[in-house]
Amino acid sequence: MVTIEHDFDATVITLIDEGAAPLAEDVVIRAYEDRVTVEQFDPHFDEVVTVTLTPTMLRDLRAALDLPEGAYRTRLP
């Protein structure tokens, strides 16, 4: 399941694991103008872990999803 909300300064996407147990914690993605954050609660440390991606990193991630194994350098548009 996925939910999408448009806040004042970000679009918030929540991914909810509905598969068979054991289930993973929800993942919250916040897309701001200058960054994207990915958050997930870590029950082992009892805290939310946040990863921040710049627009360039996000572009590279999108490209990497369709590439074979290897090392690549992307070109700036």
Results as ranks from 00 to 15, higher is better:
Met1Trp: 08
Met1Tyr: 09
Met1Thr: 13
Val2Tyr: 10
Val2Pro: 01
Thr3Arg: 09
Thr3Val: 09
Thr3Lys: 10
Thr3His: 10
Thr3Cys: 05
Ile4Phe: 15
Glu5Leu: 14
His6Pro: 02
His6Thr: 14
His6Gln: 15
His6Gly: 08
Asp7Tyr: 14
Phe8Asp: 09
Phe8Tyr: 14
Asp9Val: 08
Asp9Ala: 10
Thr11His: 05
Thr11Ala: 07
Thr11Lys: 14
Val12Glu: 06
Ile13Gly: 01
Ile13Lys: 04
Thr14Tyr: 01
Thr14Gln: 08
Leu15Trp: 00
Leu15His: 00
Ile16Cys: 11
Asp17Val: 03
Glu18Cys: 08
Glu18Gln: 15
Gly19His: 03
Gly19Ala: 06
Ala20Tyr: 15
Ala20Lys: 11
Ala20Asn: 14
Ala20Pro: 04
Ala21Leu: 15
Pro22Leu: 09
Leu23Val: 11
Leu23Arg: 03
Leu23Gly: 03
Glu25Trp: 04
Glu25Lys: 09
Glu25Leu: 06
Asp26Ser: 10
Val27Asn: 01
Val27Ser: 04
Val28Glu: 00
Val28Trp: 00
Ile29Cys: 03
Arg30Lys: 14
Arg30Trp: 02
Ala31Gln: 12
Tyr32Met: 12
Tyr32Ile: 04
Tyr32Asp: 10
Asp34Gln: 11
Asp34Trp: 07
Asp34Arg: 10
Arg35His: 13
Arg35Met: 12
Val36Ser: 02
Val36Glu: 00
Val36Gln: 04
Val36Asn: 01
Thr37Lys: 00
Val38Gly: 00
Glu39Leu: 06
Gln40Ser: 15
Gln40Tyr: 07
Gln40His: 05
Phe41Gln: 00
Phe41Cys: 04
Asp42Met: 06
Asp42Asn: 13
Asp42Ala: 13
Asp42Ser: 09
His44Leu: 12
His44Gln: 12
Phe45Pro: 00
Phe45Cys: 06
Asp46Pro: 01
Asp46Ser: 09
Asp46Met: 12
Glu47Lys: 05
Val48Trp: 12
Val48Met: 12
Val48Gln: 13
Val49Pro: 00
Val49Cys: 13
Thr50Asn: 05
Val51Pro: 00
Val51Met: 06
Thr52Gly: 06
Thr52Phe: 10
Leu53Thr: 00
Leu53Lys: 02
Leu53Cys: 03
Thr54Glu: 05
Thr54Trp: 05
Thr54Ala: 07
Pro55Lys: 11
Met57Thr: 03
Met57Gly: 04
Leu58Met: 15
Leu58His: 02
Leu58Tyr: 12
Arg59Thr: 02
Arg59Phe: 06
Asp60Ile: 02
Asp60Gly: 07
Asp60Asn: 14
Leu61His: 06
Arg62Lys: 13
Ala63Met: 14
Ala64Pro: 04
Leu65Met: 15
Leu67Ala: 14
Leu67His: 08
Pro68Leu: 07
Pro68Phe: 01
Glu69Arg: 13
Ala71Gln: 15
Ala71Met: 07
Tyr72Asp: 00
Arg73Thr: 07
Arg73Met: 06
Thr74Pro: 00
Pro77Cys: 11
Pro77Leu: 10
Pro77Glu: 12
